[in-house]
């Protein structure tokens, strides 16, 4: 699709918005039907975390996809995808604080200090907050395009943290986090390559 009309783009955005809600709807239905298995709290927490990570990677796919296809309008979807990553991360964190720990702040604090995978998970979330807060046109104007872009470079270390968070929590079989790490590595390599080419063109 070369360049959708404003109406088409609005339709695409609305459909994408609803599509991104599906993982949450599926969980809600599971809770209602009591079909989330023996340990629903663990399943809910993990599923929400997985979707937060999925959306981070999907958002990071936009730029390479745009360059490969020439569909520059794809960038108009990136903000929503990034905000959905934050949305699912927020639900994931809430599920940990509420369902898993039941607001036992002493235990939570101990977890954050003593458990590397929780520490790095919290760090991921903290880094996501400023990005979510500045994901609007007003913030871009206030910060100026350049500073805004610099701030949003945080997406890279943050997504690495998110994959580490997943990797470290796995008891033994790291196949799935390994797949995520591979995808992330590929997405980062594309940036390194593009950056290198830019540098060469300049000098």
């Amino acid at each position: 699709m070369p360049q959708p009309s404003p109406r088409q783009l609005a339709l695409i955005k609305t459909s994408l918005f609803l599509l991104c809600l599906l993982p949450m709807v599926r969980l809600a239905v599971g809770v209602y039907e009591d079909s989330l298995g023996a340990n629903p709290i663990e399943l809910i927490t993990r599923d929400l975390g997985t979707w937060a990570l999925n959306f981070l990677l999907i958002a990071l796919t936009i730029t390479p996809l745009r360059k490969a296809t020439g569909w520059h309008w794809l960038v108009r979807l990136r903000r929503m995808l990034g905000l959905y990553a934050f949305f699912y991360a927020l639900l994931h964190l809430s599920s940990y604080l509420w369902l898993d720990q039941f607001f036992d702040w002493g235990e939570i604090l101990k977890d954050i200090i003593k458990r590397p995978f929780i520490t790095v998970g919290m760090l991921t979330f903290l880094l996501l907050v400023p990005l979510a807060l500045t994901s609007n046109n007003l913030a871009i104007r206030r910060l100026g395009g350049k500073r805004w872009q610099q701030l949003h470079q945080l997406i890279y270390p943050l997504t690495i943290c998110a994959v580490l968070h997943y990797w470290w929590l796995i008891k033994l079989d790291v196949m799935l986090p390994g797949i995520y790490a591979g995808l992330l590595a590929a997405l980062l390599m594309v940036r390194v390559r593009d950056g290198w080419q830019k540098l060469r063109q300049r000098y």
Binding site: N39, F102, E107, K114, R115, F117, L169
Partner: peptide, 19 residues
Amino acid sequence: VDHPRWSQARERRIGEFTK
């Protein structure tokens, strides 16, 4: 004695809400 990566102080009894 904790597992190096998580606490063993509490547990969730399957079917119960709080640990």
